[in-house]
Design a protein around this nucleic acid. Structure first.
Lengths: 190, 190
DNA sequence: GTCTATAACGTGATAGAC
DNA sequence: GTCTATCACGTTATAGAC
């Protein structure tokens, strides 16, 4: 693992924005290097291949998810505020920079991604579903959420809905995402 | 509008498969032409630019949607079988060829798409939501579906859920899509 | 009317300069 | 340790052959 430098972090930050805006096949090393005032080949020093860069990005998404949910997974936080926090994160990312969830982007381009990136994508999705399942099941036990069927199924449905709605919002307008979120809340109210 | 030839149709069919498998930025004219035994430049005779090809593809998705829903939009069919028909279409497309909904692909790559393709994507999403809203509202009126809030919000939520779930299924396995669909049915049962 | 040869450019990546 | 000059290749697109 390479040393963490400022340049490396700046590259990751720029790549993150570009990935969420344009997809993995929609940006090049030049898009990263030019605003930094260096040549595109300089990126190869920090990430030898674009696959390496992609893997690092996906690992970072997993770390972010882990950090934001660690305390919940271990000792059980407030399920309502957990779900609201996640929803707000999606809403803010979309409102501020038009960003949608990386998992949908990974899926759209899945069959063009190198093997190690696919693996990271799988881990990220599995971890996301596992966390949301815990949140929803605990919320149901406490009487805060109401739904039928397994918590895992509802977790998949809620995550899918938020992910898809942000995508539709990019095409058809921001209110689409707000309406979807309002509906999720209504449906969970029971 | 160019004459409809066999070659033109074959190109559209191949491009359709490639788009849904790899995304619009994930395939080239060569990927289309090589299996057909012609040079990649030959495609330019039928579709002068890749943008033209993309627009034709999106228009075709709109036509397919219109054909499948025309009779419902005009005189009102059975809402349950309409929704089940659409769900089954998504399920089959995924099971047979690993395909996901084009709207998610459009969204992931939206900011890299030429203007005329963006426009077609917007129309497709609007038409999809409008149709599903009618289906759900009529189903609620008939007592077949149960949900709170505006039909448009539920339509957005259901469409988003199916779209997102097919994406997650591509990454995490087909049962994810089946679980999401089961949950949608349970939630509509009320 | 249909397709091929070829151009013009952008891409990820290597080798080596400083 | 960090970056640049350059390469080999794939891309979309044009000009023109048949």
């Amino acid at each position: 693992m390479a040393k963490v430098t400022n340049t490396r972090l700046a590259i990751l930050g720029a790549a993150d924005r570009l990935l969420l805006e344009r997809g993995f096949n929609g940006f090049s090393y030049k898009d990263i290097s030019e605003p930094m005032g260096i040549k595109n080949a300089a990126i190869h020093y920090h990430f030898s291949t674009k696959e390496d860069l992609g893997v690092a990005l996906f690992q970072r998404y997993r770390e972010i998810l882990r950090d934001r949910t660690a305390e919940f997974m271990s000792r059980g936080g407030n399920p309502v505020s957990q779900l609201e926090g996640y929803s707000q994160f999606i809403l803010d990312s979309f409102a501020q920079r038009g960003e949608i969830c990386p998992m949908g982007i990974m899926a759209a381009e899945f069959h063009t991604l190198p093997a190690r990136m696919k693996k990271q994508a799988q881990l990220l999705v599995d971890e996301m579903i596992a966390w949301l399942e815990q949140v929803l099941e605990l919320g149901r036990k406490e009487g805060a959420f109401h739904f039928e069927g397994p918590g895992r199924s509802k977790a998949i449905a809620v995550k899918s809905c938020l992910q898809g709605a942000a995508q539709l919002a990019r095409v058809a307008g921001a209110e689409v995402l707000e309406e979807a979120l309002a509906q999720i809340r209504r449906d969970l109210r029971g």
